[in-house]
Design a protein around this nucleic acid. Sequence first.
DNA 1: ATGTGAG
DNA 2: ACTCACATA
Length: 330
Amino acid sequence: MSKRKAPSKDGNVNSDFCDFLQELAEYEKNVAGNIFKYNAYRKAASSLASHPVRVQSGKEAMKLDGVGKKIADKLDEFIKTGELQKLKKIRNDDTSTAINSLVRVSGIGPSKAKELIEEGITTIEELRKHEDKLNHHQIIGLKYLEDFEEKIPREEIEQIESVIRSEIGSLDPQFNITICGSYRRGKKESGDIDTLISHPSFTSSDKKSSKLLESVVNKLKECGLIVELISMGDVKFMGACKLVEKTRRLDIRLTPFDQYHCAVLYFTGSDLFNKEMRAHALNNGYTLNEYCIRRVGSTGTPGEPLPVSCEEDIFDYIDYPHKKPEERNL
DNA sequence: ATGTGAG
DNA sequence: ACTCACATA
């Protein structure tokens, strides 16, 4: 998931409160550079989002975790007037609006945005005239700004998946391939294509991954699927592909063979589901991360990684009812 | 080595 | 929360 704002909806009776708290959070992070306030607003928004009852006053909201006097006052103002003076100011502030435009570009964060504004570049249109001020990632982000903001229909990912499977399969049938993220969770559309691969010749005991990822990326370049490269290391490729019309963000990560299923679980998400499952694991005396699952003894020191031959194994270890990917949309 | 950014 | 890749120094 990227830095785009995701309006909170479906079944959240406090969604309008969450939206303005989220907007305040973004402001604190991107403009004011106050990560603590950013976290505070996010925490309050998340409390409100999971609260099943619509709050009628700031006072009532103060019972919730993460909501103090300051946020309670803002809720009261919003309930009373339907808006927030602070937010009106922010929306009218030149620096603030400029930063919000520039950070739409993948690779441009608050820091780079402020630097550009110092040089008088405050809009995307201006930016297009000054590509020389951007690094490679940012140039690609700008070039495909509109495409990258579009959601990808499930059917298109299915087609891209079949190309990836046949191309990588013809390279070497021993590759495991799974497209994770919201696509694996059965969503109708996704923000990007997050592909995990593994190969028996690369395990966690091998320190170097040889040229496995490179060979895969080259193959997908040759067949014309991959059209841009953003970054490329031994185990992670970031770039873009195009099958029809729009250019789409594509990530490919190579994971050690023995850590494949933990990685697939992790990158399938959702974030909230992962959080919940890791908490459950801890309760049952296990620690679970992107790489492995380990028993954690009474001393608190984790043991050796346990053998995992499929995703279900992980659920079984921690005695957690198995959830199909479609059931992980928390 | 450190900061930025993505996920 | 944590890791990877990159761009500087």
